[in-house]
Computed example of a mutant assay.
Amino acid sequence: MLLVDGSGSIRNIDFQTIKTFFAGMVSNFNIGPDSVQIGLVQYSSNPITEWHLNTHQTKYSLLKAIANLVQLRGSTFTGRALNYTLQNNFKPNVGMRADSKKIAVLITDGESRDDAILPSQKLKDAGIEIYAIGD
């Protein structure tokens, strides 16, 4: 799962750089229902699932979704986004396979307006590896 900070503190040019980074990363994987699946949650004041793990069955479809991603704006609530992702995205009904690694990659530009430590620990306790990329 990709978690991207779409808050107003992210400049438009930086959001475009994030999208380019995602596209480059996706290009290195075989995307499909029996291969790599990538979902994305964008967050600011409130998180939203842009697409679930099982939404895009081809690399082309996923790259098109990344290109069409529109920044939310708002404030940075990383803790809320982490809780949301645990509750809504690492589930079998939206593509989580029991035998696959659970990985969350978080990209943010800075400090959260809420606590992110406890929510990140909840993800770790659920067996989800978290990688954070920040400014």
Results as ranks from 00 to 15, higher is better:
Q16W: 11
V70G: 01
D115T: 12
R80A: 01
D34H: 13
I38C: 01
H52K: 09
S27G: 12
R80K: 10
M25R: 13
I117G: 02
Y60G: 06
D135M: 15
K91F: 03
V26Y: 01
K122V: 11
T20E: 12
I130E: 04
V36Y: 06
M96I: 01
Q16L: 12
K101S: 07
S100V: 07
L63E: 11
G74Q: 03
H56N: 13
I38E: 00
T76E: 00
N30S: 14
S61R: 04
K101Q: 08
D114F: 02
I133W: 02
L63W: 05
L63T: 05
L106N: 02
Q16E: 15
S75G: 08
H52Q: 09
K101V: 08
T76P: 00
K101H: 10
S44N: 10
K122E: 12
L3S: 04
S100M: 09
N28K: 14
G24Y: 02
I130G: 03
L106P: 00
Y60N: 11
L86A: 01
V26C: 07
N88D: 02
E50D: 12
E50G: 05
A65R: 00
I103K: 14
I13A: 10
Y131V: 15
L123W: 07
S61N: 09
L40S: 01
I128Y: 07
Y84H: 11
I13E: 15
S75A: 13
S61G: 12
N46S: 10
G110M: 05
A23N: 10
V36E: 05
V36D: 04
M96R: 10
D115W: 09
L40F: 11
V4R: 14
D115C: 10
I18K: 01
T49C: 04
L82F: 10
A126V: 04
G24C: 06
I107P: 00
T78S: 09
L40V: 07
Q87Y: 14
D125H: 14
L106T: 05
R73L: 07
L3C: 02
W51I: 00
Y43P: 00
L62W: 08
T55C: 08
P33Q: 12
R113V: 05
V105L: 13
A98N: 11
I48Q: 12
Q121C: 08
R113I: 08
I130L: 15
I117T: 09
N89R: 06
L3N: 01
M1I: 10
Q87S: 13
N30T: 09
A98M: 07
V4E: 02
Q121A: 08
G127A: 08
H56Y: 15
I31P: 01
L123T: 05
I48V: 14
I103V: 15
L86V: 00
S45Y: 08
A132L: 09
T108A: 10
Y84K: 08
R11W: 15
W51A: 00
I107K: 07
V36N: 06
I48K: 13
N88M: 05
K91G: 02
S44Q: 08
A104D: 05
N12F: 14
N68D: 14
V70A: 09
F29P: 11
